[in-house]
Amino acid sequence: MLKYSFRKVGQSLLLAMGVLILAFAMVRMTGDPASLMMSRNASAEEREAFREVMGFNRPVLVQFGDWITHVFMGDFGDSLHFREPALPLVLQRLPATIRLAATGLAFAILIGIPLGLIAGFRANSLVDFFGRLIALLGQSIPNFWLGLILILIFAQRLGWFPVFGADKPESVVLPAFVLSLPVMGELLRLTRSAALEVRNEDFVRTAFSKGLHRYAIYIQHVLPNVAISLVSVIGVEFGYMLGGSIYIETVFAWPGMGQLVGQALGWRDFPLVQTIVVFTSLVVLGLNLLTDLIYALIDPRIRHGK
C-alpha cells in the first residue's frame, strides 16, 4: 500500500510539473503574448511598454524560471482586468463552485447509483426503463436549455426556487440538478451494466447459495465490485464539475469559477485564465490521486500489488 501510494504521489507530481510547463507554454506558443492580451487597437509603443512591464522581452527560460518561482510562492501574477493578484480572485470563487459541484455530484450519486443497481438487477423492468430514459435525456439534453426551462417552470411559474444567484440555501438546487444530469446518466448506465455483469459472476451465485438476504448480497458483494469502476468515473466527473461550468453558471448567474472563466476570456485577461487553468488542473490531479488511493482501499488486489 505504501509503495503503491508513493508511486501514485510521484506520478501526480510529475504530471503537475507537466501542467505548469503547458500552462506557461500556452501563452507563449500561441503567438505574441502582448498582442494576445492587448486590445487590437493598441499602438506599437503601447505593446512595447506592455512587453517591458510583463517581462516578455526576456529569454523564455528566464521567464519560465521567474514564473515558476512565483507560482511556488503562490503568486500567479496580477489579473489585467482587476489589476490585483489573480490567485485570490480565483480562490474567492472557489466556495461557490465547490458548493455547486458537491451538490451536483451528490445528486448524481444518490440518484444514479441506486437506480442503476435496481435497473441492473431488474433488467427490463419499469425502473430499468425509467432509469434508461433518465440516462438518455441526461446525456443528450443541452444543459443551458434545460437550465432555462427549469427556471421557467420551477422558479418562474411555481416559485419554488430563486431564479438566479447564490444567496439562498435552496438557490443551489436548480443549477446543481442541471449540472448533475449528464453525470447521473453516465453513472446510471455504468452501474447498470456493471451490476448486470457482476450479477452473473460465480461469487454472486455463491453468495446466494449461502442463503444471504438479497439486499445483503447487493450491498456487500455486488456494490463493492461495481464501485471499482464507478470510483474512477466519479473522480473524473467531479474534477470536471469543479472546473466550473460556463453555461450553467452564466444561465443561473452563479458566482463560481465557470462564470469567472467566461468573463476572463472575454476580457483577454490571460494571467487570470492561466491561473484558473493551473488551479483547476491541480485540483483534477489531486482528485485523480485521491481516486487511485480509494481504488486501493476498495480492491485488495491493487493494495497488495497483484
Binding site: 460465480d202 461469487f203 455463491t206 447459495s209 456487500q220 463493492p224 471499482i228 480492491d299 485488495p300
Partner: peptide
C-alpha cells in the same frame, strides 16, 4: 454448496 471453480466462486475483494 461447493462449486466447480474456486478461483471465481469466491468474492475477490472480501
Amino acid at each position: 454448496f461447493v462449486f466447480q471453480d474456486p478461483g471465481t466462486s469466491l468474492n475477490p475483494i472480501l
